[in-house]
Design a protein around this nucleic acid. Sequence first.
DNA 1: ACCTGAACACCGTTCAAGT
DNA 2: ACCTGAACACCGTTCAAGT
Lengths: 220, 220
Amino acid sequence: MAKRERGTLSRAEIVKVALEVAEADGAEALTFRRLGPALGVAPTAVLRHFRDKDELLLAIGAQLLEHALSEVDTDEPDWRKRIMSLARASRRAFVTHPRVAALVATRTLRQEAEFRTVELIIGALEQAGLHGRAAASMYRAVADTILAWTAFEANVHAVGLDVMDRDGLAWTREYVVLPADRYPHIRNVAEHLSDVNREDQFELALELILDAVEMRAKPI
Amino acid sequence: MAKRERGTLSRAEIVKVALEVAEADGAEALTFRRLGPALGVAPTAVLRHFRDKDELLLAIGAQLLEHALSEVDTDEPDWRKRIMSLARASRRAFVTHPRVAALVATRTLRQEAEFRTVELIIGALEQAGLHGRAAASMYRAVADTILAWTAFEANVHAVGLDVMDRDGLAWTREYVVLPADRYPHIRNVAEHLSDVNREDQFELALELILDAVEMRAKPI
DNA sequence: ACCTGAACACCGTTCAAGT
DNA sequence: ACCTGAACACCGTTCAAGT
């Protein structure tokens, strides 16, 4: 706990160290009392830069989204690829920091990074041929699906890391041994349930929605 | 805090009162220390029926899903309607108890109610014409989308109730005033953004996916 | 202006003791 | 067998005091 010179603490550094702490020891370790020492400072010093814990979490979320956005190729001419690129980048950023992501994914961040995300999606949909009300409506369906899936995955990951021992890894195994007379449909596909991983499902769900977007934009 | 006779405390009653407490005072009020008095019992007495708080939350989640399932018309012959009915019932159950739902939605509950849900969805997909690996894969896409959206909405609701003052209700208002030169696409549809509500989006996103399911099951 | 240290009002969980 | 009460090891946040 080397003491540091006064005035050298910044919001940026706090966010960075907070991510490290959460990554290393879990979201429940992300407390002011641990964060202080990790920064070489008293626990309450952080409160001089963030009004409360919620404001800190919001800043962390913004940072995550910022990083995801920086990886998106905004010059990609194909609108579907642009949306998929954004979706994958978001997923990657959140799954990399699942414990923090779970805490912030559902917050409206209301910051630069979020506005740019919205702009990107609406632009893609307009290119696809949707405008006005239809574009607004579809934007919410697409954006919220990406966000919902991303948040969901982050949560599952975070919980998975925390209670893996209790819940067990192979949940699909339980489905295989269910009584066939009461669960005939499950039995039919049980052997395939463990093959599918969540990343594939995320891609599939999104592709399904974009298929439908395309159909509605340019009806046959 | 009328004392109660010994041996009258049950898991069922604890779950019921826990839901009431959370509903009334928020998820952060769902503590053993408040739950005890609400049950007319010492705070630690609850720990005789649930190993820890996580086990209590799991039981609450199971109860929510159970209730949702009881409202689904499983005899409905149209597979699309059956899935939509399940989705709406889940949404309703979770949005009714957003603060608790947010805490439990991402847990694999691994209980009776969950198995029946899976059985229902796979049965619907088989009726649609999907089998084996394709059915398993699509089941995950559909089920996880319902779950992700439901969890997401519950979270948004819960956060909304908790930090409504700070975040403000009319987030869409901020989008209307964004500089048009930097966000031209947003500006194009800004006036329509506030029209769409989340329930419509949930329905839309699901219909989009089911459209695509139908297309893949019976290709043109 | 920025940071510290003590204090306040909480948590979940354990455990010896009561009935 | 079931419940209580005290105790332990934590939280976020406030606030007077230091530099």
